[in-house]
Nucleic acid binder design. Structure first.
Lengths: 219, 219, 219, 219
DNA sequence: AATGAATGAGCTTTCATTCAT
DNA sequence: AATGAATGAAAGCTCATTCAT
């Protein structure tokens, strides 16, 4: 079914590559918006401006196309994690840098956020085909940062790294995930630069300090 | 669409009520599992052990049934928030009590968690019909707890309550939401009593202290 | 199926007779309005204010009920024809009397008009069960009137009686049949006493004189 | 609903047009036979020899298809009225020509006759979507003929044109409408050339003379 | 490489009818 | 005599997929 086009380095057939890309873009947008079940093949074809038949020509089936969309999006974060998560000397700065990178990646990849959520709800039914040993690749690198923080005694030694990873992810993702639901109640545009930065600072603050002021607590 | 068969005090329509309830239960389970689009009416009917026709008799349409399922589940958390969020004297204890109540409510209402998520993804398309001014009703009460914490100077005055609410919700929900995705990587059963309590402690710790030990930081 | 209630002269069970009558009335109205295919059994039951089950108890099936409705309505015109079509001495008066009787019968039996039309369209599918040798019983008597008119040389001897019957029927029926369609174009209320009488006069005039004035024609 | 596939002058979509036409033909026949309620979409598809899906592709819904069938048939009589109802010098000939044209149009358009009747019974529910200001377009032109007859003093000045139109229509339509019902009683084939002509002559005679011989009457 | 036309399986919904009391 | 609850068959409609060019 899944006809991988192998003509990448022969330089001919721009048309075909272009068509394939347009399908993939359209599919990404619609799958992200409506989920795998809610998406209609016709809608993708129309949005891509190509004949529905080509979609099957290039991707084999609706499901295969969806998987391809997932792969494509996970490649992005894989790339990010490779680049942005260098381990520096200062654990706090390491965490700050990584969370910031992750948070703004999500801000700029709306589709990624939603695709992840659909996947979470379908219990990773499809993602398994993309990343057999799935977990957000980010976690690997980020895990190392936490480990390093523990070794350097900045973070308590009995910290469960998995919990931390889950929490950081949740704190970042939720802002975008629940945005449509809560936007009506927040006055400001939640995607404005200021609000994004405000959310990031809230997250970092939470991670480093919690919300309870320690002087009070220490009394 | 004839939702409420009027009780003519002759006590005979138990059957009717029972059928209605069985449909609602089956629907809750399947809608939670597969989402509004992925759910098949036949499957609900089969699971409820009734003729498909009755489903339309009692609920009018698939969509109306879904909305009814939502309403039913939101009633539960509404009840919870009324009961569990009394404001006591100690802000830290208030928060602890509320978070614990919310977290264990989620632990015990798997369907609620998933229904919420489907709704978030569909941009609250249906929930609007249930709660016109939608937001997790919990937020209202929980917000008061935070406000009180600020007034008593346990929480910094420039704290954005909305951010806190979003974060607490995210920290609790994510554990159940992403469970299916990450379970393979965690050795223990994430729903065991110990693990649930461990997660709750992690969340409370994060809220009160953050993950960075302050002595280290303070050096 | 068709359970003819045979308790007519034992005087007991008024309730049952009453129920049967209410079903028949409701059915008559709705069948006349929407036709055999467009009618819903539930609607009849609701209008009759009885349980749907009784409908089956008394009439066996939807179709049998429809046939019963037809029989009931044809009885009316049968009765009419027995009463109103006495053969007098003056052919013109005979015709006038008969047409008037028929026309006003239609005016007062809206349902009869419509039921006849549905039957005509279904090719007498059901009426066959009521009147094996069907034709509007009126025709028999009216036919005699025309025959008499011919014998007395008031009507041309080569007149085809069947054509005349068909025409008279058409001229009367059409006024009520097409009323809903043309009413918007006629200013007056087509069912007012004046307009009814006007139509009757037009029909009689047409039958006796045609619409072309003979003086002109004779020139 | 995508009714008109735009001709891209490459002449290839004959198939498409042909399919559309076959659906329309099949639909016309079956809707005429069984009425909008009695018609089954599957039956149309089977008769047209196409997949049911295409019917929805071309026409959107069963109801829209029905409306299209109506439009299509009313176009025919519109065309007729444009062509056949020229106003000549002799009123009697004008009427004769028009009635003949109308009568034979009905004889040759069995479906039109029945579709009109279904519409009349449903109170013009659908026709409204086709001809907003509905009335048989014929009436317009025919009305002019009568008016002209009045002006030239061939027809009495107090004649109500609406009544005449209604009557002429009724006299023509009824012959075809009630044919199925009365055919068993007439020996001859009512659709034979001779019988058609006989009916037309009867109608014309009725219009011009009435059925009562004037010598008798005049005595 | 690309397309318009077509399809079959399956979905939601409706309806006349019967069961159990 | 009367009823509320329940049903199976079939209706209208949709969707991913393939055929023919």
């Amino acid at each position: 079914m899944q006809q991988e086009t192998l003509q990448k380095e022969d330089g001919r057939e721009h048309r075909s590559e272009a068509s394939r890309a347009r399908i993939l873009n359209a599919a990404t947008e619609i799958f992200a918006q409506k989920g795998p079940e809610g998406t209609r093949v016709d809608e993708i074809a129309e949005k891509a401006g190509i004949n529905k038949r080509m979609l099957y020509h290039y991707f084999g089936s609706k499901e295969d196309l969806y998987v391809e969309v997932l792969r494509n999006n996970y490649d992005k974060i894989f790339t990010l994690s490779k680049k942005a998560f260098k381990l520096g000397d200062n654990p706090k700065e390491n965490v700050t840098r990584a969370v910031r990178a992750y948070f703004y990646f999500l801000a700029q990849n709306k589709e990624f956020v939603r695709l992840t959520s659909w996947e979470a709800l379908s219990g990773g039914r499809f993602i398994g085909k993309v990343i057999p040993q799935f977990f957000d690749l980010v976690e690997l690198e980020f895990g190392d940062i936490i480990k390093d923080g523990i070794q350097r005694k900045f973070i308590s030694p009995d910290t469960d790294i998995r919990q931390v990873l889950l929490s950081v992810q949740a704190l970042c993702l939720a802002y975008f995930n629940r945005r449509e639901l809560v936007q009506p109640l927040w006055r400001e545009d939640m995607l404005s630069e200021e609000m994004l930065e405000a959310r990031l600072q809230h997250i970092l603050n939470l991670i480093f300090e919690g919300i309870f002021s320690h002087k009070q607590e220490g009394e």
